[in-house]
Design a protein around this nucleic acid. Structure first.
Lengths: 196, 196, 196, 196
DNA sequence: ACCTACGGGACGTCCCGTTTAT
DNA sequence: ATAAACGGGACGTCCCGTAGGT
């Protein structure tokens, strides 16, 4: 069971995560969190040692939410290429899962010259995501669904790069439809690596 | 010829641009610019009405520098597909042209929930870049170098998205080599759209 | 007889009353009471529902102590004017009965823009004191010791005002001797209202 | 001429003085002043080194306002006893000059176990007031308007004590009319000291 | 052209009154 | 009966962007 304190901690995280994701670490003030939670500043510091710790927990929460949605239902998909296609489709179709967009993209840029703790978390997210995609590709090669010689890392990196890049663009343009272009292009690539 | 005032203005911009690009609009303080230029705080206000105006000029400068390098030499390249290939290669091979990385990427994320003036500039950059790529594709179709039916917008968007996305990843990983994966993938795509 | 719990309650009050009287309601913290009693903070809450209740009980105790001393021996005094004279003298001669000075004065000022519960208690004290003095005056008129037409309320109010006012001054000056001036002036007044 | 900063300082004092007078030094928070002035906390600290300095300046202002009103018009009054009578009357008739009541009374009690800086200011006010009254009495004796042998200090102290005491009572009762009783009693006293 | 003053947002800490769990 | 947890108000400082005064 959850103690009252743990529940409050969770409540804070859930309120803070969208703010940090939207405004960035520096851009989101403790005062913002205070207003969003209704909890006084010093109350927040009872649950988190520092703003950094709160931001880190918020990132983890946000990324957890986002990745949960992005892989949802993939276990029912058969075939490695189909799985990759599905993963791309899920991403493209859920651009607004979390307020402020993709936490990985935001945090990676936001911390480029900034907070190293958050940066590490973003890197870890990215690595895990890449490894997961690599695994699918490798499986596909093993099972003969993907052509031998296809570099799993290259496929994974391209998928991630193209998706995140297109997300950035679509947000800049305020037009989610743009993401379909990336989807199409990635499907071309997947067709290309599929074993004939 | 440049007046003394204009030269000072230019000197400020050149010093400020890397700072804004690295730290973002909020993250870069006037004080930072003071230290970089050696000009007093209120001295800066003689040349720029506000921090925003300075940041805007800095962005324009940074983007100008970056895009100049990225298209450098393309006029000597023959053939639309070749031109696109070249554009991709230039991007991949010049990841560190400007301190802080790609101003478009940085500003797009930085201003996602922030400064609308800078946001507009970023969008304009992106649009111009896209239109330029679209033009090349369209040319290619006209000249029979690219298959009929290929959507210029899709190609342009995919190139930009993949390149910017991979830049983000390579910066996060601290490993520029990753960008080669994106290059390879984009070359597959370009092969795919080339007229047989 | 007193139960153990009641004794503890009483012990707390006796320790807290001087603190509240000296520091005021806001100025005296529960922690102060903890240190004075050696009882843990949450232990206090077994005996009092809130700080306010503790402060109220403390006020009642303090006022009880003070007024007991101030009327001590008056039953042996004959004659209304003599009684009034005696009351004034007792007040003047016992300026340090209770640590922190007169609870009525302190609480009246302290709660002027503050706690209404304590304020009511102070008002009740004052009213009771005034009524008691009024009674003596009225008696004196009835018995022919005080001139007809003398307003009991005026006499009572003046005695209280002058005594409390002089107490304030003497505390401010750190010089108790000043109170003799008030005593003299009040005796002039009492001489004035005495029936010739 | 007043610089902008000096004007702001004055504006702060005028807004803060009623607050400190009503709530006391501890009871009035910087946040209260922030809200009353619309100036941010750190803005206030540009004009005052500490809360104490702000409170001191506020006290001086409040006391200045109050005493200005209380002596207003006295220069037109002839005769020492008449002057004293006038001073009493002014006090009684202007009980609400300043929000929160008499700053001297409030500060004297508020700082009884508290701030020594403010305490000193209150004492200084009281001393000056007393000396002023003493001067009038002494003059009266010299000019033969007041009986020889009358102790100026006693008269001054009694006037102050009775007025401040009655102010406290009237505020506690929420009834300003009570102050007339003190006025009457003080006039008896003044009649008593007047040379026949 | 600079130095200083100005007013502001955010930060993290202190201690407080109260409640919860032991 | 106590220790620990909880949420809160207030504090004073830092640095920021901007505006005046010299």
């Amino acid at each position: 069971m959850m103690t009252k304190g743990e529940m409050t901690r969770q409540r804070i995280i859930e309120a803070a995560a969208p703010l940090f994701n939207k405004k960035g670490f520096e851009g989101c003030s403790i005062q913002d969190v205070v207003e969003a939670t209704g909890i006084a500043k010093s109350g927040l510091y009872k649950h988190f040692e520092s703003k950094e710790e709160l931001a880190a927990a918020s990132y983890q929460f946000a990324w957890g939410q986002v990745s949960k949605v992005r892989i949802q239902g993939i276990e029912k998909v058969d075939g490695s290429v189909q799985k990759l296609r599905y993963a791309v489709r899920r991403f493209v179709e859920t651009p607004g899962i979390f307020p402020g967009g993709c936490p990985l993209l935001n945090t990676a840029i936001d911390t480029d010259d900034g907070n190293p703790v958050l940066r590490k978390l973003a890197l870890a997210s990215k690595t895990k995501w890449k490894d997961w995609l690599c695994g699918i590709v490798r499986d596909g090669v093993t099972r003969g669904e993907i052509r031998v010689g296809v570099e799993p890392r290259l496929v994974a990196n391209t998928i991630i790069a193209t998706l995140e890049g297109t997300l950035m663009i679509s947000r800049l343009e305020g037009n989610v439809a743009t993401m379909r272009d990336a989807q199409t292009a990635l499907e071309w690539m997947l067709n290309g690596i599929a074993a004939s």
